[in-house]
Amino acid sequence: MRLTVDGREIEIDPDPEMPLLWALRDLAGITGPKFGCGIAACGACTVLVDGVPVRSCSLPVGGVEGDIVTIEGLADGDTLSAVQQAWLDEQVAQCGYCQAGQIMSATALLDEVSDPTDEDIDNAMGGNLCRCGTYPRIRAAIKRAAAMKLARA
């Protein structure tokens, strides 16, 4: 089957029941989305499908239609997305393993809510577990990214 991932067409031959995550990682070698739980309980595998955040560890690849965007496709060449740049500026990551998912959820949030409140952030990000406890910096980075996007717009 063909998938459009990060603007590229890829051709893979998975069992349609295989979760999108493993199709991306094992078959297409796209390792940006991470495996954390396999039951959509931690958010590390989050990717966007047509702009909607989904937990790729639980989504059968056979039913996937639309453009997939992973953490690897956010930057425009060497220019980081506003969310990535804010993450860098706020020095958010510790171990970094969950951050691909955090950044994808934050990206989805900011696509719909340009200037999120603390409550908006809580409501959007509760599905993304961070074991290092980077939450205070994640919150700061989302606000910074919002300001950056508004300034760029």
């Binding site: 990682r25 094992d26 070698g29 390792t31 940006g32 989305p33 991470k34 495996f35 992973t70 953490i71 690897e72 956010l74 930057a75 980081l80 990535q84 993450w87 860098l88 020095q91 958010v92 990551a93 970094g96 393993y97 951050q99 691909a100 950044i103």
Partner: peptide, 29 residues
């Protein structure tokens, strides 16, 4: 003084730095 972490860029771009990201030719899982 606080430094910019040397691993931060890799971690915000999804670079393959973790054990689970190892990819080798002819690899099984």
């Amino acid at each position: 003084k606080p430094q910019k972490r040397v691993d931060m860029l890799a971690k915000v771009t999804g670079a393959p730095i973790f054990g689970v990201d190892v990819m080798l030719p002819d690899m099984l899982f």
